[in-house]
Computed example of a mutant assay.
Amino acid sequence: MRALRRVLGGLVTLLLIATAALLLYAFARGRPQDLPWTPLDLGRPVGMFTGRKLTALTDDAPACRALLDRAGVTYTALPPRGGVRCGYTDGIRLGPGGSRAINYAPPGLATSCPVAAALAVWEWNVVQPAAERLFGGRVTSVEHFGSYSCRRLYGRDEGAWSEHATADAVDIAGFRLSDGRRISVIGDWTGDEAEGRFLRAVRDGACDLFATTLSPDYNAAHRDHLHLDQAERGTTGWRACR
């Protein structure tokens, strides 16, 4: 028993040291989102646990909308839309402008609140910095193929249902820059030009924020868009990125 107590005591000591080291690491970098227990703040820099906290918002629509409010994102809450396999209870429609909101084309993108929250963090921490770094400008609008669609994966007649069936996914087709330039997934993905590097950078950044990020590197069905979703995957919280 004495030996067992020594072992347990050593493990507790190591755990305390690891926790203290994690705290110092997070606050030294100015990234409290590196810690699993800090509350999510959409305006904070992306940390190790930001993605999991965003995905967890699928269980708390009021908390999600409160985060959007505090971050200055313009939106309208949508009434619940029900069905046996399709529908949502946390839908919102993103509005134009706002203190911290990007425009979407076509306008009025309607999606689940957790997807909208992740899109906001993606814009501020990934999309705009990549545009400024590679083009010296900003993204003024994001082109999309929509979110909600009551269908199974790949439109099949049977099999698993798509995250689009609950508005927990959005398909991004391209970007418009402040200088008028248009960057499209289908036209600019390949090659070493700045446009291709930009698209791959925003894909890589999305992998830290969404449960699933799929691009033309995944398969031909995604040749013209980035699929971003907040699929619930239980306690493991594994993420798909390709």
Rank of each mutant, 00 (worst) to 15 (best):
L23P: 07
A63P: 02
Y25W: 15
T76H: 12
P80W: 03
K53M: 08
T55W: 06
L16T: 07
S99G: 14
V84I: 15
L67S: 02
A26V: 04
R52F: 07
A71N: 04
G97W: 06
G72H: 02
A18R: 06
D34E: 14
P62F: 04
A61R: 01
L94V: 08
G30K: 12
L8I: 12
Q33K: 10
R44P: 13
G72C: 08
Y88Q: 11
L23G: 00
P36G: 08
G83S: 14
G82M: 10
S99A: 14
P62Y: 09
D60M: 03
F49C: 01
G97H: 05
A20Q: 04
P45T: 13
V46W: 11
I102Q: 01
D34I: 09
P32C: 11
L24I: 14
S99D: 05
G72S: 05
A20H: 08
T55V: 15
A66T: 04
V12H: 13
T55L: 11
L22S: 08
T13W: 15
T89S: 12
A18P: 01
D59W: 00
L22H: 06
G43C: 12
A66M: 02
L23Q: 09
R70W: 03
Y75G: 04
G51A: 00
P36D: 06
G9R: 14
R29K: 13
T50F: 01
C86K: 15
R85K: 14
Y25S: 10
R93T: 13
W37G: 01
I17R: 02
T19F: 00
P39S: 10
P39C: 09
M48A: 15
L11Y: 10
G51L: 06
A101N: 01
R93K: 13
K53E: 00
P96D: 03
D59Q: 07
P80G: 07
T74M: 11
Y75M: 00
G47Q: 02
R81Y: 15
Q33C: 11
R93E: 14
T74V: 12
A77T: 09
T19G: 06
L15P: 00
T13D: 15
A101C: 07
Y88K: 12
L24D: 07
I17E: 03
L16W: 10
K53D: 00
V7A: 14
T76C: 01
L8E: 12
Y75L: 07
K53P: 01
G91T: 01
Y25Q: 10
L78V: 10
L14D: 02
A61V: 09
L23E: 04
L67G: 06
L67Y: 07
A101D: 00
G91N: 07
L67W: 06
G87V: 15
D90C: 12
G95Q: 04
R31E: 12
L16M: 08
F27K: 05
G30Q: 15
R52P: 09
D69N: 07
V73Y: 04
L94A: 00
P62T: 01
V12C: 14
T13H: 12
R70K: 06
A56Y: 01
R44C: 10
C64K: 02
